[in-house]
Design a protein around this nucleic acid. Structure first.
Length: 786
DNA sequence: ATAGGGTTAG
């Protein structure tokens, strides 16, 4: 009997050892056979070890069956099984086992039970269950335990409930490095970067011992924030504690310096690493690439390949020149080809990054091809595609893709909404935008600054400044882009003084103006005829804010002066430029010549333009208009023929009007509308009254960039007239009419609309390609300059 | 520890 027991114990030790040594499932199955053969299948210790190993090899079902056959399971075995279910993505099994332990077992859950169950809830976002387990843990008095506490902190941070996480954290005054690290890395992972750094500082102040993991996480937060100072503080601590040679710390520092645009120290740090691993290479490559040093990025990438090290998706994504101001189509193609060869194009991050760069290079078809071919479409890849369409002006496609995404049950996030709103804004689709706003409210995304800025911009561009202002008033804080959007919104509607007021408010609030701020405010001044204010701001920009004016700023000033009729002053201004004026500047002067019908100066400007930009369509159309205005029709026709010959696209004019949330689109002389007959009747009635009142159709060609439409005025009816007539017959008397035209409104239609607003006693709001016109009582808010 | 998606002007 004694012998037999000894023998059993020896066999058991032998088998336990054997289980530990198994490196795959088939070896483990053989060992299992031996266990059965030796009649140890009911032995708790052996079965527990076997369960553990089976779970490691993802054979949790088999493990579960084995356990249920054990006559006398204990808590330890149950805990191992909970961990196994969690590992094998079976949260509901974890929970039911946990509940089984709680309800009518001989034993009570311990710290391990709670820790494993909580981390299962965390991993699988079982929010309600997690909180219930937390409650039980409080009752059982185990929340002060470091292991349980860390799991709870991790869980609440995963759920985004920072308050709860802090409560658990604060309840454990004696913290170890794991608890601190859980708190810090959870905050950083969820984007609460500043808070992560703050907790780290707390940790240091309390004298808690940190490790290289702590430093690496804090460094990644500092890098993301581009807070060089915070990062250098961490560097200081790493030196003090002798962790500055650790490869994680060094890699974190490289990434920090790279993200702050400091590649020289990054390079020095990289050289300090004796044997750089893939991650440190990746940090360097992405650093070079994002700092526009393509040559260094590519050469380091080459070095990595030569060293025989395998590359991963991070390497590829870091190499892709996604944020470069100049296109690198050739490089992108090469990277694309390489990714294909090593099987990484199917990686979601890689294909998303490639999609993004293609669409930024206006190669939207390539982007779409990649998107269609990617086997798993992450939210990021949907976003990349939607924003690609929105940024390329393919607004309808962007919106229909958004609908596809919704139909497939992919939940949009703030990034998605921001892009879709930009599409709505471009489209002028107010009811669509309002629908998006409802979706945003439902998801509680209004607090996101990108979303609310885009929302305000959408309302302004869809004609409703009041709604835009309402969104802005709700925002707790504004960044430069928010201010810029509002300044340009007021400018767009011709409210120059409001825009100036906002500009002063922005400066007073301490938000630094950007290049776009000055463009927005200068355009606002220009459209409102506030010449001296604009000149003052340009002066301020250079002298007080130390801005080097870009070509766009000069173009704005030329526009400002020229629009106000100070053409000579505009020309003088061009001569003061420190470099040669480019197409935008001459284009602005030409535009001003159009308004003020200065043919001589127009020819000077257009000569310059054709010299600099021979392929431009718009300027050729303008030139043709100049000739037409001089009644030089043969020359005008010649220019137009040249345009046609080059097969340069011309956009046909069309106008959109929403009636009862339904969009109606009209083209020139459109007969396709079901109510065409009454529309034309209404138009005839208006035109008759207009003629009687002495209005004349502009016979001389207006010098506007309105393309083909203009010439055909005598035979054709422009789309905006049709839309207004339709608006008049399909809405209540006295209500506002809003229409959207894709091109600039022509002089004749502008006159027509003024007249229509007077005799019908309606406010008519017109958004054209450039700005808003508010017609009221025969007067337009643009003051007839547009 | 490294990597992917967003708002503003013309």
């Amino acid at each position: 009997m004694i012998n037999r027991a000894l023998n059993n114990s020896a066999t058991r030790n032998y088998l336990l050892n054997k289980i530990n040594q198994c490196t795959n499932l088939s070896q483990l199955n053989q060992t299992h056979a031996q266990i059965i053969h030796n009649s140890l299948y009911n032995d708790l210790i052996t079965v527990t070890k076997l369960t553990q190993k089976l779970c490691d090899f993802n054979a949790v079902c088999k493990a579960s069956l084995l356990c249920s056959a054990v006559p006398n399971p204990d808590l330890f075995l149950c805990n191992v099984l909970i961990k196994g279910f969690s590992r094998n993505n079976l949260p509901e099994k974890c929970v039911s086992l946990y509940l089984g332990i709680r309800g009518g077992c001989d034993f009570e859950p311990d710290c391990y039970t709670y820790a494993f169950t909580v981390s299962a809830c965390s991993q699988f976002s079982c929010e309600k269950m997690g909180m219930l387990v937390h409650g039980n843990a409080i009752v059982d008095g185990v929340v002060g335990d470091l292991f349980v506490g860390s799991c709870l902190v991790d869980m609440y941070l995963n759920f985004g409930k920072v308050g709860y996480a802090c409560k658990v954290f604060d309840g454990i005054p004696e913290r170890d490095a794991v608890l601190w690290n859980t708190m810090i890395s959870g905050l950083v992972r969820k984007g609460w970067l500043e808070d992560g750094i703050r907790v780290f500082c707390d940790m240091v102040v309390r004298g808690s011992l940190f490790d290289s993991t702590t430093l690496a996480v804090v460094l990644s937060a500092a890098a993301e924030l581009q807070e060089l100072g915070a990062g250098m503080m961490v560097q200081g601590f790493s030196i003090k504690n002798g962790l500055d040679g650790h490869v994680y710390v060094l890699t974190g520092l490289i990434s920090l310096y790279a993200k702050c645009g400091e590649m020289v120290p990054a390079k020095l740090l990289f050289e300090q690493i004796e044997q750089p691993d893939l991650v440190s290479y990746n940090a360097m490559i992405s650093g070079f690439s994002s700092n526009c040093d393509i040559a260094s990025a590519v050469s380091l990438f080459g070095g990595l390949l030569l060293s025989g090290e395998k590359v991963n998706s991070s390497t590829i994504v870091g190499l892709i020149p996604a944020h470069h101001p100049f296109g690198h189509l050739d490089l992108t193609w090469s990277i694309h080809g390489f990714s294909f060869k090593c099987g990484l194009v199917t990686n979601s991050s890689v294909s998303t990054a490639l999609t993004t760069v293609y669409s930024r290079l206006n190669e939207i078809e390539y982007a779409r091809k990649l998107f269609d071919e990617s086997p798993t479409k992450s939210l990021e890849s949907w976003n990349a595609m939607i924003s690609g369409y929105a940024q390329n002006g393919l607004t309808e496609t962007a919106i229909s893709l958004f609908r596809n995404m919704q139909a497939l049950g992919v939940t949009p996030n703030p990034v998605t909404f921001t892009s879709v709103l930009s599409a709505c804004a471009q489209l002028g689709a107010l009811s669509l935008g309002k629908w998006i706003h409802e979706l945003i409210s439902k998801e509680k995304f209004e607090s996101n600054i990108y979303v609310s800025t885009a929302l305000a911009d959408m309302y302004a561009k869809c004609g409703s400044l009041e709604d835009a202002q309402r969104v802005i008033d709700m925002m707790p804080s504004k960044n430069a882009v928010t201010w810029n959007a509002m300044i340009s919104a007021y400018g767009l509607h011709g409210h120059g003084h409001e825009a100036l007021k906002l500009f002063r408010e922005m400066l007073a609030s301490g938000v630094a103006p950007t290049g776009v701020t000055f463009l927005s405010i200068l355009y606002a001044c220009s459209h409102a005829g506030l010449v001296s204010d604009g000149e003052k701001i340009f002066h301020e920009m250079v002298n007080d804010h130390g801005f080097e004016p870009l070509a766009e700023h000069y173009a704005c000033m030329v526009d400002l002066l020229g629009r106000a009729g100070k053409l000579d002053k505009a020309l003088e201004f061009i001569e003061t430029m420190p470099y040669n004026a480019g197409p935008p500047v001459w284009g602005a002067l030409l535009g001003a010549c159009m308004i003020h019908k200065n043919t001589d100066l127009a020819r000077v400007a257009s000569d310059k333009l054709f010299e600099l930009d021979p392929d431009s369509v718009g300027y050729r159309v303008l030139l043709s208009n100049i000739y037409s205005a001089e009644q030089n029709y043969p020359q005008a026709a010649l220019v137009r023929r040249a345009v046609k010959k080059r097969n340069l696209a011309k956009t046909p004019g069309c106008t959109l009007i929403e009636v009862g949330k339904l969009p109606h689109v009209f083209t020139s002389s459109d007969q396709s509308h079901p109510q065409a007959e009454s529309i034309y009747a209404m138009l005839e009635k208006l035109m008759g009254k207009m003629r009687n009142a002495g209005f004349q159709t502009e016979t001389v060609m207006a010098l506007h960039d309105v393309e083909e439409e203009e010439k055909e005025l005598m035979v054709n009816v422009h789309s905006e007239k049709l839309a207004i007539a339709f608006g008049l017959i399909s809405s209540e008397p006295g209500t506002e009419i809003r229409i959207f035209k894709n091109l600039r409104v022509c002089l004749d239609c502008h006159n027509f609309t003024k007249f229509a607003s007077k005799i019908t006693n309606r406010v008519i709001v017109v958004r054209d390609a450039n700005r808003f016109h508010h017609f009221r009582d025969g007067v337009c808010s643009c003051g007839d300059y547009w």
